[in-house]
Amino acid sequence: MNEISPGNDPGNDAVAQAAQRLLSASAHRIPCPPVRDLIGSDDVKAAYAVQELLTAHRLEAGGQVTGRKIGLTSPAVQRQLGVAQPDFGVLFADMSVPDGASVPVAELLQPKVEAEIAFVLGADLAEGPLDDAQVRDAVAQAVPALEIVDSRIADWDITFGDTVADNGSSALYVLGSSARPLTDFEPVEADMTLKRHGETVSTGNGAACLGDPLTALGWLARTARDVGDPLRAGQVVLSGALGPMVPAAAGDVFTADISGLGSVSVRFHAARPEGVSA
């Protein structure tokens, strides 16, 4: 595992140490203490600086960015984690899991599942007012999605700073097989039911995601442009949880149904199936 260097600025020591702590936890699959002792609980600049270091490290290792995830959009999830504002993380190609596939829990630390609406962009969101109309027009299609979140921080003992630094507590994502243009689907009107082994474990709706998943997308578009890395055509955006996240364990099968959009599922198993490489 390569070390993360603070560079030539001694002021970056805390950021580099936080990134290294999270990187080690991920590499060894052993949850670590929170990083707020290094960067604070609500220092937005420091938290995203850690995330950027980890993103750069992943890109240097050959990672390919496929989009972004928006987190902490649901009041239910905010209450679960004790935070009160959205955040974002980066999606990579190796985080994508096929619909209905099985995920080895041994490759995760303390996973949870949440159901979302994903947007596939058909146009850049880099210029112009980035208002509601432009954001809506930029969406090529909406897709049912599951996000498998997974904190590198022990016992999910996180503040806003901890989860932002940890790439929004991201791990994997699953896109469903169905897709709809926004002419045929209104995200704010969607109802979501998440089932585990056929039993309902989470419910919600589009209004639970910052009032409207498209509002969340607009927030991300403006935020991403402000930090100099705007959203681009072809990217996937996970718009945020529609209801409470649910812990996942080996043997679990989750299926999310989103009205007007379709369903998406994922399984979890204890060990990697024979013949399947890492």
Rank of each mutant, 00 (worst) to 15 (best):
residue 11 G to R: 14
residue 15 V to A: 04
residue 20 Q to Y: 06
residue 20 Q to K: 06
residue 22 L to C: 10
residue 26 S to M: 11
residue 27 A to V: 14
residue 27 A to D: 14
residue 31 P to L: 01
residue 32 C to N: 12
residue 33 P to C: 08
residue 36 R to K: 11
residue 41 S to R: 15
residue 43 D to G: 00
residue 45 K to I: 11
residue 49 A to L: 00
residue 52 E to M: 11
residue 60 E to M: 07
residue 61 A to D: 08
residue 64 Q to P: 09
residue 65 V to P: 14
residue 68 R to H: 06
residue 69 K to T: 00
residue 69 K to R: 02
residue 73 T to F: 08
residue 73 T to K: 04
residue 78 Q to T: 10
residue 80 Q to A: 13
residue 80 Q to C: 07
residue 81 L to K: 15
residue 82 G to F: 13
residue 88 F to N: 13
residue 90 V to A: 14
residue 91 L to N: 06
residue 92 F to G: 02
residue 95 M to V: 01
residue 102 S to M: 15
residue 104 P to F: 06
residue 109 L to A: 12
residue 110 Q to A: 14
residue 116 E to G: 03
residue 123 A to Y: 08
residue 127 E to S: 14
residue 134 Q to I: 08
residue 135 V to M: 00
residue 140 A to G: 09
residue 142 A to D: 01
residue 142 A to N: 01
residue 142 A to S: 06
residue 143 V to R: 10
residue 145 A to W: 00
residue 147 E to H: 04
residue 154 A to L: 06
residue 155 D to P: 12
residue 157 D to L: 07
residue 165 A to H: 09
residue 169 S to R: 07
residue 172 L to F: 11
residue 178 S to L: 08
residue 183 T to R: 10
residue 191 D to M: 12
residue 195 K to V: 09
residue 196 R to I: 00
residue 199 E to D: 11
residue 202 S to H: 03
residue 206 G to F: 05
residue 209 C to G: 02
residue 210 L to N: 06
residue 212 D to P: 11
residue 214 L to C: 01
residue 215 T to Q: 11
residue 217 L to S: 03
residue 219 W to V: 05
residue 237 V to N: 04
residue 239 S to I: 00
residue 247 P to E: 07
residue 248 A to H: 03
residue 248 A to I: 04
residue 249 A to T: 12
residue 255 T to M: 10
residue 255 T to R: 13
residue 257 D to M: 15
residue 259 S to C: 04
residue 267 R to D: 10
residue 268 F to R: 00
residue 268 F to P: 14
residue 278 A to K: 05
residue 278 A to D: 09
